[in-house]
């Protein structure tokens, strides 16, 4: 079994951290063969940014995603650019506050109002990456929510653990209500 995930958006949204957390959860807490890689531009904010996680039972050779099973899109530009790399029947999770793509038989589309919900429940947008990561985990079941929480605790700055765990719960609830 090989599962390819892509997080995409613009620089500064925290999608690389989201991919690192997913990779850590799969590699360390679920003992899967895992490779995480990323591509971004030279600017600190803005610009197209993507991060791939490949989770497999076998060692992973080529480290970039080519037939994506599940994708998170936090910007319209990213959604447009990467939708063609999605496997037939793959999962697309978009932030419906800022991204809009048409329904299609080619993929399963999840439109989640992630930005407005994050802002509403947490008072700031900084945890959008964790919300979207948790929504992805909840929809794909690629790792357990427990493994996700452990990896979040490992990866986020000290003192922000409970804040981010709360964000993960918001993402989970969002995904469950969308189903």
């Amino acid at each position: 079994m090989k599962y390819e995930v892509r997080f995409s958006g613009s620089g500064g949204q925290g999608i690389i951290l989201a991919s690192v957390i997913l990779g850590t959860a799969a590699a360390i807490y679920e003992n899967k063969e895992t490779v995480q890689s990323q591509a971004y531009g030279p600017e600190a904010r803005g610009g197209a940014s993507k991060a791939d996680v490949i989770i497999s039972d076998e060692p992973v050779g080529y480290p970039k995603a080519r037939e994506i099973d599940a994708m998170v899109c936090l910007s319209q530009k990213a959604a447009k650019k990467y939708i063609t790399s999605l496997k037939k029947g793959g999962i697309v999770i978009i932030d419906s506050d800022f991204v809009d793509i048409p329904e299609s038989k080619k993929y399963k589309l999840f439109k989640l109002p992630m930005s407005s919900t994050t802002l509403d429940k947490m008072g700031k947008l900084i945890a959008l990456n964790i919300v979207s990561l948790s929504a992805l985990v909840s929809i794909t079941k690629i790792i357990s929510h427990e493994a996700l929480e452990k990896a979040i605790t490992d990866s986020v700055p000290k003192g922000t653990e409970s804040f981010n765990i709360e964000a993960a719960l918001i993402g989970k609830t969002l995904a469950e209500t969308a189903k």
Partner: peptide, 9 residues
Amino acid sequence: EIIGHMREK
């Protein structure tokens, strides 16, 4: 860049 920035266990 790929080998330097990618993560593996």
